[in-house]
Design a protein around this nucleic acid. Sequence first.
DNA 1: TTGAAAGCGGTACCAA
DNA 2: TTGGTACCGCTTTCAA
Lengths: 333, 333
Amino acid sequence: MATIYQVSELAGVSLATVSRVMNNNAKVSDKTKQKVLDAMAQLGYQPNSIAQSLASNRSNSVGVLVSELHGPFFGDMMSAIEETLRYEGKHTIITSGHSDEKREKESIEFLIGRKCDALILHAEAVSDEYLLELEQRGIEFVLINRYIESLKNRCICLDNRQGGYLATQHLLNLGHRQLVYVSGPLWKQDAQARLTGHKQALNEANIAFTQAQLFEGDYRQDSGCKGLDYFLERGQKFTAIVCANDEMASGVMSRARQLGIVVPDELSIVGFDNIIYASYLYPTLTTIDYPIYDMGKMAAYSILKTVYNKKDVQVTPVFVPKLKVRNSSIQHT
Amino acid sequence: MATIYQVSELAGVSLATVSRVMNNNAKVSDKTKQKVLDAMAQLGYQPNSIAQSLASNRSNSVGVLVSELHGPFFGDMMSAIEETLRYEGKHTIITSGHSDEKREKESIEFLIGRKCDALILHAEAVSDEYLLELEQRGIEFVLINRYIESLKNRCICLDNRQGGYLATQHLLNLGHRQLVYVSGPLWKQDAQARLTGHKQALNEANIAFTQAQLFEGDYRQDSGCKGLDYFLERGQKFTAIVCANDEMASGVMSRARQLGIVVPDELSIVGFDNIIYASYLYPTLTTIDYPIYDMGKMAAYSILKTVYNKKDVQVTPVFVPKLKVRNSSIQHT
DNA sequence: TTGAAAGCGGTACCAA
DNA sequence: TTGGTACCGCTTTCAA
């Protein structure tokens, strides 16, 4: 592997000059430049990125923390981030936090230890204080799907409240009056916001919301099944069920089928996220579209702009959810 | 950020000694060691991984190439790899190749340029020659789901032929005699192998296989729909359909529903891969389990063993697929 | 068992 | 516009 030194020798110029043409950040005469370029080509020179990093204090890598590497949701996010960054020659280092405070922290510190220039965090369990501390330490980062007022210029968010609102409004528009809600873990910000939107829609329609209409799930399929059982066991009356994500909705759907409840005829279901297989289910799932791909892209842009000084990018921090009507919800008669 | 120099000063020893206790690869007296450890703790010293890499010519990072970052399949693979490597303090750099030769090559070269110590490749489009060339260049790598005879000690494979065989055998055991097959893109090795297994099972049952019973899909859901249409349009008679992956199977399933064909009563379906949502479908999908998580883990182990000299790992290169019977296949009457 | 010092392959400041 | 050179923070050989 050729080094910058060999290039400089072959081209008959100094190290500094070679460095200049590589980074082309200083004036070099066309003639000299050409000599250097020729030498590089001849040697098949590739700069050593590690040495560059050490000298420039830039690793050209961005660390990404997601909850889970698998699962339909984060794949899209990573996909967007990696594509965008690689196009600019930056690389993506990934870690997962499993929605656990300790593991999230470990992952973040791991990434910092690897000298990432910036971090893109889908951090759920770590405290606001810790995130503020990161900022104090001078770490560059953006947050996906988490809003902290004093860090607001670092947050790429979906309006989860609005999403919850839309889901419920849709059912109300279809004539449903007896609704129940399967939420996510209520310590998570997004779960709270979605529930708030739900309540707000009910409120506007002058329908009371009581605790009996709420089941707190964990965003996993199984808790959808449990949620449905829960409501049925208590003799709760309902014609529609709102789930805080699609996985739980799919759980409700399969449990309903086991119990002989016909969806959507006897029970309408609405999910949230619009994960890929929402459209594979039977019936296909009405849901709220979460533009996670675009949000991942935006996070990457934001880093490119603030950390790598890429000028021509516009960062929009708040995304708007959209209702996606499919076959799991129907007019109440 | 404290440097090794400051630690050495505070501890009253040389740089070399500090380095030794960090890597504990040489004798250091307990007393000296303790002084160094104390100094490190006091300064909150964290070694600079970039500098370590430059000096040691080791980046402690492993590059991973997958076809797609999203999608149910690769998530599990990445998940396994990242977990395993991080446990050993290595980091995982990911890229995607989109099953396209040019992009796969670009990704691989990108990873090499970033000085990855080793690569884990799910390379589909790149030629055998290119891979051989990589070996010539002294690049360390393992291949997932691709078998090349002269690189066999680098291959972590599933016996795809056996999987195809099991899927078909299952249907034959259920009494089906009229089968059709939706394959993957036949330029892909795994698609070929699965089809071969299918033919073999038919052959053993003395059932002829003709081109009319084959539709070449692209592993995506939509081609499952197309496949079903294809067979129906030609008036092909069949009571069961074997799909080379679950996504296409789910396509067949939803198309069948649209057409009013009842699964499994009128049509049995078997998939391949056992992706997460195979069990969410209705009816739940009978499929062949592809232990991709374990295979990812094995790939990581293999790297740890050969590249990072971790001794106590056993590498098993060939994995065996297993039949997973669910509700989409039923006895033919 | 310890220390001195020569790299690793670049960047970037200061002079010329 | 160019060259000289002092780092960046660590590893590793060689001597002591």
